[in-house]
């Protein structure tokens, strides 16, 4: 490495400093080019949210339903409310909701519902998205 002190001129610098500088310049240029490309040609599709059941498990005090919320749009959705609905024994519909602070574009977020009925089957649980806001 260099120990040239303050009197060095640009031409006197060791090759390793220029190599490190050159590699860094290429990396920074790649990041800038990626951002510029996304800014100029990337889509700006509003949030397109979907929710699906990822894991369904009987636990000691009910049924654990793990869901995955996916945003296939480009923009971030805030305050995303996911819901599951199911019928109880008397024909009534029970709904439960959970709220995700943010679901960025093309990203996924996970959450879980704890339902009281330990006898539920996967087919009885209907997940959906209630709504969202802009961040």
């Amino acid at each position: 490495m260099s120990g040239d002190g303050n009197s060095s001129r640009a031409g006197d610098r060791p090759a390793v400093e220029w190599i490190v500088g050159g590699v860094s310049a290429v990396l920074v240029a790649c990041i800038a080019a990626f951002l510029a490309y996304q800014a100029a040609f990337g889509d700006s599709v509003p949030p397109r949210l979907s929710v699906s059941v990822d894991r369904f498990e009987q636990v000691s005090n009910g049924t654990l339903v793990e869901v995955v919320v996916r945003n296939d749009g480009d923009r971030t959705a805030a305050g995303v409310v996911a819901q599951v609905a199911m019928a109880d024994g008397q024909g009534q519909t029970i709904r439960k909701t959970i709220r995700f602070d943010y679901v960025p574009g093309h990203a996924t977020r996970r959450g879980a519902f704890l339902l009281d009925d330990p006898q539920l089957s996967r087919a009885e649980v209907r997940p959906s998205i209630d709504g969202f806001t802009e961040p």
């Binding site: 640009a10 500088g21 050159g22 860094s24």
Partner: peptide, 13 residues
């Protein structure tokens, strides 16, 4: 450009 290339850009990386 010499310190820019040798120090600033590697520093940003």
């Amino acid at each position: 450009w010499s310190p820019f290339l040798r120090l600033t850009l590697p520093g940003y990386v």
